[in-house]
């Protein structure tokens, strides 16, 4: 699964998910909940770019 990069530098790695914010490891970027935002800076998903 593909990783995605936030402009602030945070990388979303589907293998790791974002357990602190209720996203289980193995969750593809496309399957993130709509209201999920970057845990570092708060930018929405549409600001991320594929790595």
């Amino acid at each position: 699964m593909k990783k995605f990069l936030c402009p602030c530098g945070y990388e979303y790695d589907p293998a790791l998910g974002d357990p602190d914010n209720g996203v289980a490891p193995g969750t593809a970027f496309e399957d993130l909940p709509e209201d999920w935002v970057c845990p570092v800076c708060g930018l929405p998903q549409e600001e991320f770019t594929e790595m």
Binding site: C8, V40, C41
Partner: peptide, 9 residues
């Protein structure tokens, strides 16, 4: 108006 990452979070 939030200006997230322009230029800090």
């Amino acid at each position: 108006v939030e200006m997230t990452m322009l230029h800090w979070p």
